[in-house]
Design a protein around this nucleic acid. Structure first.
Lengths: 199, 199, 199, 199
DNA sequence: ACGTAAGCGAGACGGTACGTCGCGTCTTACC
DNA sequence: GGTAAGACGCGACGTACCGTCTCGCTTACGT
């Protein structure tokens, strides 16, 4: 069917949306690993064979959903970097828009393959955010390697985010960004401060 | 066959050992999630029905193996707490004894259900380690809640450990403990220092 | 668009012809049972949904094709009956015009539902051909029942036809008709001859 | 499981028997082509996956069942050949033992692939039965080729058998054998007799 | 010759069966 | 009593084909 407009078939959009919703709801309910394609399709009230017409398996569905969310993120400009505190806040605001989704990809329900990849992503983002803070590569055995620092920060960030999303009544993005800022910059900065001051 | 002594049937011990080994090897190879009971038993050269005589499923096997390792840990006294730097080092030494095991329970191969629970454990341990450092519960919105701090530290700790185990040629437990000490205490301590000094 | 003349839309005729061709070719290739609507339409280079606009399923297509061939047969007057040897020859000449088609409906590739129905047809034809030869209904247990004879003759006829069509270099219709005549009339006639002569 | 006795697991025999029964019943009901594995297993009250543990598909099941029946046939010595009229009678007696089975493999319900193969078998048997009757290979164009004769006889035989099995109240094997004998030998013999006598 | 209704291509969709795989339970024989 | 061998019921998997359905484009027909 040669589309004149670039927009997809309405039925297709409906189906994909239903399936993505059902994926998140199902994962919240019983975890991604235990979730079957049947669960998803019956929740979405879509025939199972229709699922396979759009996605290869549940991992594919998740991946495509993640990419869709990422696109929203890009469009909103909620990209952290340039060390702007505002960027961090916007990121958290974005996350608050999709609490279930982020709860799922970060939280206990996530499958193994998932949160590591997400953590990698996060690592990149934080790296971009903090990279101008310093970039030296001291081989001083006293100082932790940069690599370790960033990995640790990424894990810490994800852990903190998961905590935030698990809260019944979460604090505001601004408040949380402030805390994160404090905690994380400590890891990256304060050690060198102490180094600077101690000897 | 009632054992007079507490020691188990030799065949039983052999079987369980083979299965636990196969579990770790298999998880290293293809990840815990993708690992089937068949994989484990064929690798262990044990009949599949024998597996079910000892364990309910692969999660049970893993859990029992984890507990076994924990027992070794307890016996070795490698328990951190009391703020002893030595405890930390001993813990890392212990971990170095079972690099595959810890790589599995911490790393990317771990199933979802696993590393969160382990992180909880770690959270407890770090909490025990640092609890005497301070215990106040300021409701000051400037300061991150204690809960958040500890969660973040636990995540950071696990992330750092995973980094350590992934290294080709890992640094010594002493070295790594030193780095960890620095990074982690920063999260918990420096913020209050800054608070103390800023105003 | 109401057709004024009885002739159909050119596109429709084209489509139906392509599909009927593809049906026969496909059946020759892989047998009727294994042939799917997809096979047929892709071979005919016709969209699958177009198939369903014309036929309910592949059985319908085949049936309509058979009827079309029958119509040709009627028009040619190649109907056996009246005991005319020429009728038999004309029939075989007609069959020779559509060797693939008749190979398919008679041969090993035919689906179950098919060749029995065809055999029934054949039974009728042979019955018409030979009915005037005799029509008594002896309940003499020595003589095979008429019903059995005709059934047997029909099967024999179909088998012989299939044999003829499978030959690399088939003999002429005249030759084959001669043989058939011999074989079949034996079944129907000679037994009574023997009966007549034996006692 | 190393069997001491050559006999198979009792459960296995039960399962296979149930499936073979269900196959025949199901084929009688709705025909072999329309019969699904689900139909068979649900009728046999056996799990579908158990079916696949024993047979590759319904064709395999049928084939194995056919072979089982053949073995019975061999054991009973009901093999025709040597021109013994008694052999023919014994064959029909055997067939009468499994009327559903033979009705299925010969009758209208049989799939395409089936009755031709069976007809081939039958062809062999009849060939064995009649081969000593004559073995000349006249290239006389007046006489039908031997090949054609045998093919025709095989078809005729199968058709007659199918007729016999379809009868409500079938005649005795002896009676039917007598008729068959008459009809079939006519095809093979009488033509030469006529040839011998006519000129 | 040309406007229009039909035929048609493209393909989404709900169904149903397929054959495979893994699970956890069980029975039976061997050691 | 522990183990090997393996049958069995269960249920999810991903694939294939079915027949139905919309929706635009294109094309042959009738005026």
């Amino acid at each position: 069917m040669q589309k004149l407009d670039g927009v997809e078939d309405l039925r297709v959009r409906r189906t994909r949306k239903l399936l993505q919703q059902a994926l998140i709801e199902g994962t919240v309910d019983k975890g991604f690993a235990a979730l079957t394609v049947r669960d998803i399709t019956s929740r979405a009230m879509v025939n199972r064979s229709t699922f396979y017409r759009h996605y290869h398996d549940k991992y594919d569905l998740l991946e495509q959903h993640i990419n869709a969310i990422y696109e929203v993120l890009e469009e909103e400009g909620g990209i952290i970097g340039e060390g702007r505190h505002e960027g961090l806040i916007e990121l958290f605001k974005h996350i608050q828009q999709f609490p279930d989704f982020y709860g799922v990809v970060l939280g206990a329900q996530a499958d193994a393959f998932l949160s590591p990849s997400f953590r990698q992503q996060t690592r990149q983002r934080f790296l971009a955010y903090f990279q101008q803070t310093f970039s030296e590569a001291t081989s001083d055995p006293e100082t932790p390697p940069l690599d370790l620092k960033f990995t640790t920060v990424a894990s810490a960030g994800c852990g903190a985010l998961a905590w935030w999303l698990e809260q019944e009544r979460p604090s505001t993005p601004e408040q949380f960004a402030h805390w994160m800022q404090q905690i994380i910059s400590d890891i990256l900065v304060s050690t060198r401060l102490r180094q600077d001051s101690e000897p």
